[in-house]
């Protein structure tokens, strides 16, 4: 028998926001990279995992969670630059399958590489002491660290929005995702823009990994699990759509959280059911433009 009270449901919705927040951070990078570069980045989960591992090591070096929170996404983002410059750039103009295969291979190599560097056994990262407690929200006790994750996610999204909407580079990125050929014809070096976008997208995956580490632990397979959910989010939201990634990410977080409450065993499957249902009604996703992925 289920005792469904309003406060229990509110608590459930609240936990769903954090689940969704991590997915949004992941999916937005994935969507950004796809929207501009039509690269399906299968290594996105591996960069999320790498973010968590880099954070573990940086935390050991700097002894400061705050420094780690800033530095780790930058380190991972820089690796993203290198991957774009040295590997993916060679595949532009070929079929979209080629970068997909490349990044898939890369993700396998990264998982094995991490095991070589950090060992096969998972690691533990603690949240900073200031964030370790739980606060009483009236309807439940909620970990301060999870509130912090919501805040960082919101701040990162706001910064990305300002960057895309209010800066000249942002303008070029938006234009480039509409019509790359035209932007090129206007004399813009899109190679540099793609480099930047890939780095930002990867950096956001790294940030998601840094944030997830203290909640879920750090282990080599962590990226493999989340990448599937992220693809679901991107597909449901609409390939290449940033508002779509945000809405679908939060929606998935809530769906998983609420399903866990009523029927925990279905929580794994329900996201795929929702994806199938959305695709039946809107084949290009909630916010997607038809024809983008063709």
């Amino acid at each position: 028998m289920l005792d469904v009270s309003l406060s229990a449901l509110t608590a459930q919705v609240f936990t769903g926001i954090v689940l969704g927040g991590i997915l949004v951070l992941m999916a937005i990078g994935l969507s950004l990279i796809f929207g501009l570069m039509t690269v399906v980045n299968f290594a996105h989960g591996a960069f999320y995992m790498l973010g968590a591992y880099v954070a573990f090591s940086l935390l050991g070096l700097t002894k400061s969670f705050w420094a780690t929170l800033v530095l780790a996404p930058l380190v991972v983002g820089t690796l993203g630059f290198l991957v774009e410059r040295l590997l993916i750039r060679r595949l532009y103009g070929r079929s979209p399958d080629d970068p997909l295969l490349l990044t898939f291979g890369l993700s396998l190599a990264m998982v094995e590489g991490v095991k070589l560097l950090w060992g096969k056994i998972g690691l533990t990262v603690d949240p900073p002491t200031q964030l370790a407690a739980a606060v009483d929200l009236g309807f439940m006790r909620f970990p301060v660290y999870r509130l912090f994750v919501i805040a960082v996610t919101a701040a990162a999204l706001l910064a990305l929005w300002l960057f895309l909407e209010k800066t000249n580079v942002g303008l070029i990125i938006r234009a480039g995702s509409r019509d790359a050929l035209m932007v090129r014809a206007l004399g813009v070096d899109l190679n540099r823009i793609w480099l930047l976008v890939f780095g930002i997208g990867i950096g956001m995956a790294g940030l998601a990994g840094v944030l997830a580490g203290p909640m879920r632990g750090v282990y080599a397979e962590m990226g493999v699990e989340i990448i599937i959910e992220c693809f679901v989010v991107v597909v449901v939201g609409g390939m290449g759509s940033l508002p779509g990634a945000i809405v679908a990410g939060l929606l998935m977080g809530e769906i998983v959280s609420l399903t866990t409450f009523f029927a925990p065993r279905l929580a794994e499957i329900v996201v795929f059911v929702v994806m199938a249902a959305v695709l039946l009604v809107r084949p290009s996703g909630l916010f997607g433009e038809a024809g983008l992925a063709e």
Partner: peptide, 21 residues
């Protein structure tokens, strides 16, 4: 009794229900 998938250590969605009980 709450099942969760092995190797997927995200329990937050399970915890409020347990606390309420």
């Amino acid at each position: 009794s709450t099942p969760y998938p092995l190797g997927k250590p995200e329990f937050s969605a399970h915890l409020p229900k347990i606390q309420a009980a």
